Simulated assay, not measured.
Amino acid sequence: MSHSTPIPNGQRVSIARIEHAINVWRNAQATISDTPEILALDDESRCLADIYGMMIFNGLESIPLDALSEHQLDALTVAEA
């Protein structure tokens, strides 16, 4: 996964979008797992959880989209597709 579209300056991503994307990835993982509870996050959820946790810790409701790493942006974009 790689994003090739430039990110417009000033565009922001909300904590709600990050949370939704994490849940999309977790739900996708749950459908391929035999156990009802997932004890480990997949790579996409994990990378988004890192930024999500930082946002909660710092009391941020949104961050600049360009603050996301390429991996985080890809995980967000694919989850929203």
Results as ranks from 00 to 15, higher is better:
residue 1 M to E: 10
residue 1 M to H: 12
residue 2 S to Q: 15
residue 3 H to C: 11
residue 3 H to I: 12
residue 4 S to F: 12
residue 4 S to C: 13
residue 4 S to W: 13
residue 5 T to K: 11
residue 5 T to D: 09
residue 6 P to V: 06
residue 6 P to L: 06
residue 6 P to I: 06
residue 7 I to E: 00
residue 7 I to N: 01
residue 7 I to Q: 00
residue 8 P to Y: 03
residue 8 P to G: 03
residue 8 P to Q: 05
residue 10 G to R: 01
residue 11 Q to I: 05
residue 11 Q to C: 06
residue 12 R to S: 06
residue 14 S to L: 08
residue 14 S to K: 08
residue 15 I to N: 02
residue 16 A to M: 12
residue 16 A to V: 11
residue 17 R to E: 03
residue 17 R to M: 02
residue 18 I to H: 00
residue 19 E to Y: 09
residue 19 E to R: 13
residue 19 E to W: 07
residue 20 H to P: 03
residue 20 H to Q: 14
residue 20 H to Y: 10
residue 20 H to K: 14
residue 21 A to Y: 03
residue 21 A to G: 05
residue 21 A to F: 02
residue 22 I to V: 12
residue 23 N to D: 15
residue 24 V to A: 05
residue 24 V to L: 03
residue 24 V to Q: 08
residue 24 V to S: 04
residue 25 W to F: 08
residue 25 W to K: 02
residue 26 R to F: 07
residue 26 R to Y: 09
residue 26 R to G: 07
residue 27 N to P: 08
residue 27 N to Q: 15
residue 27 N to T: 15
residue 27 N to R: 15
residue 28 A to S: 11
residue 29 Q to W: 07
residue 29 Q to N: 11
residue 29 Q to A: 12
residue 30 A to R: 10
residue 30 A to L: 10
residue 31 T to A: 13
residue 31 T to I: 14
residue 31 T to G: 08
residue 31 T to M: 14
residue 31 T to K: 15
residue 31 T to D: 11
residue 32 I to S: 11
residue 32 I to C: 11
residue 33 S to M: 09
residue 33 S to Y: 10
residue 34 D to N: 14
residue 34 D to F: 11
residue 35 T to M: 09
residue 35 T to N: 12
residue 36 P to C: 10
residue 36 P to A: 12
residue 38 I to E: 07
residue 38 I to D: 03
residue 39 L to D: 14
residue 40 A to Q: 15
residue 40 A to W: 13
residue 40 A to H: 13
residue 41 L to W: 10
residue 41 L to K: 10
residue 41 L to N: 11
residue 43 D to V: 12
residue 45 S to H: 07
residue 45 S to G: 09
residue 46 R to C: 10
residue 46 R to M: 15
residue 47 C to L: 06
residue 48 L to N: 00
residue 48 L to D: 01
residue 49 A to L: 12
residue 49 A to D: 15
residue 49 A to V: 12
residue 50 D to V: 10
residue 50 D to E: 13
residue 50 D to P: 04
residue 52 Y to H: 09
residue 52 Y to P: 02
residue 53 G to M: 07
residue 54 M to A: 14
residue 54 M to F: 14
residue 54 M to L: 13
residue 54 M to D: 15
residue 54 M to N: 13
residue 55 M to Q: 00
residue 55 M to L: 02
residue 56 I to S: 04
residue 56 I to Q: 08
residue 56 I to D: 06
residue 57 F to Y: 13
residue 58 N to V: 05
residue 58 N to R: 12
residue 58 N to I: 03
residue 59 G to T: 06
residue 60 L to I: 05
residue 60 L to V: 03
residue 60 L to D: 07
residue 60 L to E: 09
residue 61 E to S: 10
residue 62 S to M: 06
residue 63 I to Q: 04
residue 64 P to E: 06
residue 64 P to V: 02
residue 64 P to K: 05
residue 64 P to R: 09
residue 65 L to N: 01
residue 66 D to Q: 03
residue 66 D to N: 04
residue 67 A to D: 00
residue 67 A to M: 03
residue 67 A to F: 00
residue 69 S to Y: 00
residue 70 E to F: 13
residue 72 Q to T: 06
residue 72 Q to R: 05
residue 72 Q to A: 07
residue 72 Q to V: 04
residue 73 L to E: 02
residue 74 D to Q: 09
residue 74 D to L: 04
residue 74 D to T: 08
residue 75 A to L: 00
residue 76 L to V: 01
residue 77 T to Y: 04
residue 77 T to S: 07
residue 77 T to E: 05
residue 78 V to A: 08
residue 78 V to G: 02
residue 79 A to Y: 03
residue 79 A to E: 02
residue 79 A to K: 01
residue 79 A to S: 05
residue 81 A to W: 14
